[in-house]
Structures are given as structure tokens and as C-alpha cells.
């Protein structure tokens, strides 16, 4: 067998699997998105762009997009800052790190459904410990997930609690892998802690930060479990993100055509976002290579 044939032979299974699990479902979902596809109705008539138009003229879709956008911006920012601060703190205590790190990782290991249920108890308006503590310091009880204004904040608090350890662990791994030479050099040059952080640590940590942001952004766009258990998207639609919106269309209302159309509409900005971050990562890698 020639080298070319051998390569082809080795590549074919990968391509076949890719076609089967990625390309085929994608094309199939396009065919579904242009049909009036309801599993309970035998004839699936051609809808053209009808499903896309229905989604784009549905005010709930835009509200769900807004909820997702808020979650994306707030959670990314808070988790990143908290995660970085915790990672930096753990860097300062190398001896006791082994003790604190596993403890800080516990929230990440709790199942999201459990987080949702526990959230219901912890934020319970009349008997929950959070409101009890607020009362102790003289603040009136808040309505948390029962309030249309606070429900999304409650969801985000729980999600930040669950996911910050992941951000912390990844950034900590990044910090631990940084070379020590640049630090020694800037110390000789007389740089203070702020300068060291902004001009040495952050730039060198950029690839890890980009990776963390991509992974977190993708997860936030799929946020579902905690919301499903805690609020079911309510009160009203105040905590309904795009994932729950699509789920309800597809698996509660069985309008698979509209659900597929919604999924495609969500995929467009998602692809742009991922492409943007990947490009950023590639550019940084090139920069690092050039510096070397």
C-alpha cells in the first residue's frame, strides 16, 4: 500500500464518523427547519422560511436572547474576576493550596439539578438562610426567584457559585505553568506588583483566558438545568434563556420545525463568537512564536 493510500485509509473512518455525527444531523436539521414538522401530525408539509419567520417575529425569542445575553455578559465577567482572584490567592499559599483547592472545587462537582433544588431552599423567601442572614443585618427579606426582577440574578448567583471553581482551576493551572524567568527579569528592573500583573502575568495568561472564556461562553449559551428546576423560565418569561425556549418548542410543544429553525438562528451568532475567539487564540499563538 502506498503512503498516500495508507493515509487515505486512516482518514476515512474519521471522516465517516464526522459525517455521521456532525454533517448529517446538521443537514437533516435544515430539512426539518423548512418543514411544518410536528411529530403528532402525520404530514410534514414544506414551510420554506416560515419557521424562521415565526421565530423572528416571536417577541419571546428576543426576550430569551436578551436573557441569554445578560447571562453571558454578567456570568463571564463575574466568574472571570472571581476565578482569577481565587487562583492568584491560591498561588500565594503553595503549602495549603492542596487543602483549599479541592474544597473550592466542590460546587463544580454538584449536579446542576441538585443545585437548582438546593437553590429553591436556600433562597426560600420566608425560611431560607439567605433571607435570614439579610434580616440579621437589618435588611428586609428579598423575593429572589419569586420576583421577576430578581429571579435572573438568583439564577446567575447559583450558576456563578457552580462555575467559578472551574474558571479558578483552569486559570490556576495556567498560572502554575508560566515560566519564572520573566518574573525574575522584571524584579531586577524594579517593577511593582501591579505592573507585573498587567504587563507580565495577564499577557502570558491570555491563551488560557481565551480558552476559559470560550468554554464558559459555550456552556452559558446552553444553560438549562438549574433554570429548569429553579424557575422553569418564570416568573412569566423573566428567566427563559434561548436553550429553554428551544427545548419548549421542540420537546414540549413538539414543533420540531420551529425548534430546528430556532437552533439554527442561535447557531449563527454562536459560530461568529467561537470563530472570533479561535482567531484571537491563533493570533496570540503566532505572537508568542514570533517573540520566541
Amino acid at each position: 500500500m502506498t503512503k498516500k493510500r495508507t493515509s487515505l485509509f486512516l482518514v476515512i473512518p474519521t471522516v465517516a464518523i464526522l459525517v455521521l455525527i456532525v454533517i448529517f444531523p446538521m443537514f437533516y436539521s435544515i430539512t426539518v427547519a423548512v418543514q411544518n414538522y410536528d411529530i403528532r401530525i402525520p404530514n410534514h408539509t414544506f414551510a420554506g422560511l416560515g419557521n424562521f419567520i415565526k421565530i423572528l417575529t416571536d417577541s419571546n425569542f428576543y426576550h430569551a436572547a436578551l436573557v441569554t445575553g445578560i447571562m453571558l455578559a454578567v456570568e463571564l465577567a463575574v466568574e472571570f474576576v472571581l476565578g482569577l482572584v481565587l487562583a492568584m490567592l491560591l498561588m500565594q499559599i503553595p503549602l495549603s493550596r492542596k487543602l483549599y483547592q479541592p474544597i473550592l472545587l466542590i460546587p463544580m462537582m454538584v449536579m446542576p439539578v441538585v443545585v437548582g433544588y438546593v437553590g429553591r431552599l436556600v433562597f426560600e423567601i420566608r425560611s431560607g438562610p439567605i433571607n435570614y442572614l439579610l434580616n440579621v443585618i437589618g435588611i428586609q427579606s428579598l423575593q429572589w426567584h419569586a420576583s421577576p426582577h430578581l429571579a435572573l440574578i438568583t439564577v446567575m448567583i447559583l450558576r456563578v457559585w457552580r462555575w467559578t471553581p472551574f474558571v479558578m482551576a483552569t486559570l490556576l493551572a495556567g498560572l502554575l505553568s508560566l515560566p519564572v524567568e520573566p518574573y525574575e527579569s522584571v524584579q531586577v528592573d524594579g517593577a511593582n506588583a501591579r505592573q507585573t500583573f498587567f504587563y507580565i502575568t495577564l499577557p502570558m495568561l491570555k491563551p488560557v483566558i481565551t480558552l476559559v472564556i470560550i468554554m464558559r461562553a459555550l456552556e452559558i449559551l446552553q444553560a438549562f438545568d438549574i433554570i429548569y428546576v429553579l424557575t422553569m423560565g418564570g416568573p412569566g418569561i423573566s428567566t427563559m434563556p434561548l436553550s429553554l425556549y428551544t427545548y419548549l418548542k421542540g420537546f414540549r410543544y413538539w414543533d420540531i420545525g420551529q425548534a430546528s429553525a430556532a437552533a439554527w438562528l442561535i447557531m449563527i451568532p454562536l459560530s461568529i463568537l467561537v470563530t472570533f475567539f479561535v482567531k484571537m487564540m491563533e493570533e496570540e499563538e503566532v505572537e508568542v512564536e514570533e517573540k520566541k
Binding site: 429553591r120 426560600e124 423567601i125 420566608r126 423575593q143 429572589w144 419569586a146 420576583s147 424557575t231 416568573p235
Partner: peptide, 16 residues
């Protein structure tokens, strides 16, 4: 109604 009733499922009403 008690505060937070908009977040009440079966357990919350039964318990209260």
C-alpha cells in the same frame, strides 16, 4: 398571600 408565592411549587405550599 405569603411573600414569594410566585415561586411556590407543591412542597412550598404544603409546608407553609
Amino acid at each position: 398571600s405569603p411573600p414569594g408565592v410566585l415561586s411556590w411549587e407543591w412542597d412550598e405550599l404544603y409546608n407553609a
